[in-house]
């Protein structure tokens, strides 16, 4: 039986990398005594996959994953067991049976929404964002495994909206970025393009969109 889980990743868990999040979820389900399906072979791994790796340091309220159980257990029961066994920093938001039977979760993903909270006021943020969205192309270079690759940042941005803080509130920025295999927008790259230190603000993922057409 295949289930889909949505969970929040907060607190100290934000510094747990993608592989270790897998391990953390696996251990949670082991503690919950859920009958995970394991792969065959030399190193049995549970059948568990996450829609999208969250960069280290980001928090999220919308991480989505899938897992398989040997038995067909009621959704409520699985949710209750998972909730009770979850470690600090992982909170169950939603549990259903898997809706995307045909395709892999990663392939069904289309976009991700982020909210960035800055430490200080950023005068002119809205204008800068507006200028960025007005251009047709934003060519940038990404270095991966020692290889340089040119890409267009602009086509990875569906929406970018400055949210000026009121009173004591800090400024924020809401982003809707493309998240398809081989076409994933990264908030840190966008911040660099805006001339903002990407390590300074708090970046929070608020939504993952699946099999939905997003109008750019």
């Amino acid at each position: 039986m295949r289930y889909q889980i949505t969970f929040a990743k907060t607190g100290a868990m934000r510094f747990t990398g993608h592989l270790d999040v897998h391990t953390t979820l696996e251990r949670t389900m082991r503690r919950a005594n859920l009958p995970l399906v394991y792969s065959e072979g030399f190193t049995p791994r549970p059948k568990l996959s996450l829609a999208s790796a969250l960069p280290l340091g980001y928090t999220s309220e919308a991480e989505v994953g899938e897992f398989w159980l040997k038995e067909e257990l009621p959704v409520d029961e699985v949710a209750k067991a998972f909730h009770a066994a979850a470690p600090p920093g992982i909170a169950l938001k939603k549990l259903t049976t898997a809706p995307y039977e045909a395709s892999k979760l990663q392939n069904a993903l289309t976009a991700a929404e982020f909210v960035i909270t800055f430490r200080e006021r950023l005068p002119g943020l809205a204008e800068k964002v507006g200028e960025m969205m007005a251009v047709a192309e934003l060519p940038r270079v990404r270095v991966r495994k020692g290889k340089k690759k040119t890409y267009d940042l602009r086509e990875l941005i569906y929406e970018a909206q400055a949210l000026p803080g009121e009173g004591d509130e800090p400024d924020r920025l809401r982003l809707l970025l493309r998240a398809e295999p081989n076409a994933t927008g990264r908030p840190d790259e966008l911040l660099e393009e805006l001339g903002i230190d990407p390590l300074s603000p708090k970046i929070h993922r608020t939504r993952l969109l699946f099999e939905e057409i997003v109008n750019a």
Binding site: G11, A12, F15, T16, G17, D20, G57, P87, P88
Partner: peptide, 9 residues
């Protein structure tokens, strides 16, 4: 950074 946070189960 996960080395420096504590807060584990």
């Amino acid at each position: 950074p996960g080395r420096y946070t504590g807060g584990e189960l």
